[in-house]
Structures are given as structure tokens and as C-alpha cells.
Simulated scan of single mutants.
Amino acid sequence: MKSVQRSYENFAAVPSIVFRLMGYNVLDAPDETRTRRLVMWLYRWICTCSHVVCVGFMIFRMLEMTTIDNVSLIIRYATLVTYVINSDTKHATAMQRDSIQSLNRKLSELYPKSALERAYYRVNEHYWSRSFLAMIFFYIGSSIMVVIGPILQSIVAYFTQQQFTYQHCYPYFIYNPEQQPIWIYVGIYALEWLHSTHMVVSNIATDLWLLCFQVQICMHFSCMIRSLEEYQPNLMHERADKHFLAQMVNKHEYLVLLQNDLNGIFGGSLLLSLITTAAVLCTVSVYVLIQGLNLEGITYVVFIGTSCMQLFLVCNHGQQVLDLVNIGHAAYNHNWHNASIAYKKYLLIIIIRAQKPVELSAMGYMPISRDTFKQMMSVTYRGLAMIRQMIE
């Protein structure tokens, strides 16, 4: 039984669905009813307002300083600040709706239309793998556990110690059950939940759009290289050969432009994300070392693992661009010996243009690759060692 070849909409559905978890419809899906669109807009507005309120309280507590009275809280606030910066930067990137929709439309138009073309492009091999989708669910699940962990600890304390401890996720809300009614605690937890939803979804969904676009560009480059390697030029059909190679030159130039568009949209968030992700991993690791492996510590350990995986996926897709875009090698290695002089001149154009590498770039400061991931992990480890030494 032949497998169904995935459509472009299947690729774009994953990041689009994740963004809808916070009510944000990036692509303005036309199939939504007015009522559903209004509900989603209202939900997104509530998430955004909750995020603003929580960040405001965080800044107030940091300026007040009286409630930040131990090393553990200092490290926790450092973690929260870096994660807020990271997620808000990615959220600002995702707000470039026109640019994202434009790039999405261009890649959709370039996507192979017939089942035969899709089979030749091997679209199913580039589709989101089950392990990747499982990682996305695991990331979201671990982030949820960070939020609901405190109330689970309070419930456990109620059954083991006969006392509900009214714990919640973030330290900038102070709740006293002896002086304040229960509805304030419920309101705090609702704010924290929506605040976390805004940050987590902004963080992971923006990267998913980046990976979706990068996978498409890699798929086209891969097919282009394969087509060029398999082509057999001959003096007897010079005109057809020149037409084929002209198409290759035009497509190569167009893919380079698409990659530049991708870097223009996501380059800024990539640069700041590399810095803040290293800081988040470092501070969370220190916090876990201080707190120990209680329920909260275990959820943070899982969060560290998923955050590392998220960073690796972005860097790995950047490496794929560097590995795949060897169009110059494909032009030289294919059977051009029997081709015409004009065909060989066209080949030179491709080879010359291929000397400038196509890469996923963080605003031009550094190419994103597996080496970048190793450098970030090295920086994280050195930062962790330095903070531990300062504390001890």
C-alpha cells in the first residue's frame, strides 16, 4: 500500500496548532466562524494581559528587593528574567505576521503539487517525525508540570500533613491564607497559568515556524542537488540542456532569497535566544542543585532536558542547510563531459554562486550549526561552574 504524500498544509499545521494554544492564529485561517475567532481573540487578549501583569509584579518585586532575601530566590528570579526575555523576543518575532505569511505563501507555491512530484521530492521523509512530535508534547507537558507542580505538592501535604500549603509557581505573588480569601489564591494561580501559557507557546511555536520553513528550503535544495546529479546532458539536445540548467540557476537564486527572508524574520530572535537559553539552562541548573530533587526539582530537570533538545533541533536544522547546500559539488560531479560549451558556462555560474554558503544565521553574527550548540553547552557549563563557586 502506497503511503499518502504529505501536503504543505500538513507541515504548516503543527506550528499553527501550537500557536492556537494561546489564541494566536498566525495564518488567519478562513475556515473559522466569527464566534470562534472572537473567542480565540478574547483568550489571546487574556493571556497577553496576564503575562503583562505577571511581568509587572516581577519587576516590582525586583525593585522592592525586600522579598528577595536568599540565594535560591535570586537564582529563581534570574531564571525567570532570562526566560521572559527569551519568550518575549520570540513572541515579538511571531508578531511579524505579514512577513511570516509572505514566506509561507512563497513556500506553499513552490511546494510540489502532484503526488508523483511529491514522491520525487521525498516530502514524507522531511515531514515531522513521530519522535519530534512526541518531543513537542513532552516539552509542553514538562512546562505544564512546572506550573501545576506547586499545587500538587500542596495536595500531597494536605493528605500527609493534614495541611494545605497554598503553594504556587512564581515568587512575585505573596499569598497569606490566614489574612486573604481563597479566591485570591485561585486568581493568582489562574494568572500564573495564563502567563506560563503565553511564554511557553511563544517560545516553542516560534521555533516550530522557523523549523517548518527551514525544512522546506532544505527539501528543495536536496531535490535540486539530486536532479542535477542525475541529469545526463548531451550535445544532441543542447537546447533542452540549457533550459534545464537555466531552471536550476533560477531556482537556486530563489531559494537563496527565501533563506535570506527566513534569516531576516528569525535572525534577531535566534541571536538573543542563544544567549538567553544558555542563561536559563545555567540558572535553572543552579536552582535544582540548591533545591534538590523534590517534585519541583524533578520537573525542572525535565525542563532542562527539553530546553536542550529544543536548542539542538534548531542548531541541527541549521547544520542541515550547511550540509545540503553543496550545489557546486553536484554541478561539478554530474556527467557534464558530453555537454555543450554553453551548458558548461551555465554550470560555472552555479559553481561560482555556490561559493558563498547559504546558512541559517543569527543576524549575520554566526551561522547556526551543531558547533553552535556545542559552544552554547560549553558556555552554560562554565557559567554553572562559576555560579556554584561564587555560592560556595
Rank of each mutant, 00 (worst) to 15 (best):
F11A: 02
A12N: 03
A12P: 02
A13C: 03
S16A: 02
F19L: 07
L21H: 05
M22Y: 05
V26E: 05
D28A: 07
D31P: 03
R34Q: 03
Y43V: 11
C47S: 12
S50G: 14
G56H: 03
G56Y: 04
F60Q: 00
M62V: 09
M62H: 03
L63W: 15
L63H: 12
E64D: 15
I68R: 01
D69S: 09
L73W: 11
T82H: 07
I85F: 15
D88R: 13
T89I: 13
I100D: 05
S108M: 12
P112A: 00
P112R: 01
K113D: 13
E125L: 01
H126A: 04
Y127K: 06
W128L: 11
S129K: 12
R130W: 11
L133E: 08
L133C: 06
I136L: 11
I140G: 06
S142C: 15
I144T: 14
I151G: 01
V156E: 08
V156C: 00
A157I: 05
A157L: 07
Y158K: 00
T160R: 11
H168M: 11
Y170A: 03
Y170E: 09
P171T: 11
Y172G: 01
P177Q: 04
Q179L: 08
Q180I: 11
Q180L: 11
P181Q: 01
P181F: 02
V186W: 11
G187I: 00
I188V: 05
Y189D: 14
A190V: 12
W193L: 15
S196L: 06
H198Q: 12
A205I: 06
D207Y: 13
L210P: 10
L211I: 15
Q214F: 06
M219V: 02
F221R: 04
C223M: 00
C223Q: 00
M224V: 02
I225V: 10
R226M: 00
R226D: 06
R226F: 00
S227P: 02
L228Y: 09
E229A: 08
N234F: 01
N234C: 05
H237T: 07
R239N: 04
A240P: 00
F244N: 06
L245R: 04
M248A: 04
K251G: 00
H252P: 09
E253M: 15
V256E: 10
V256W: 07
L257W: 09
N260C: 13
D261K: 14
I265R: 08
F266E: 11
L274R: 11
I275F: 13
V280F: 10
V284P: 01
V284N: 05
V286D: 04
I290M: 09
G297S: 07
Y300Q: 09
V302R: 02
V302S: 12
I304A: 00
S307C: 08
Q310L: 14
Q310R: 15
N316S: 09
Q319C: 08
Q320L: 13
D323M: 08
V325D: 14
N333D: 05
A339M: 05
I341P: 00
Y343P: 13
K344T: 03
L347N: 10
I349K: 10
R353V: 08
K356E: 15
V358N: 08
L360W: 12
A362S: 09
M363V: 09
G364S: 07
Y365R: 06
I368D: 01
D371Y: 13
K374D: 03
M376D: 06
M376S: 06
Y381N: 01
G383Y: 03
M390L: 09
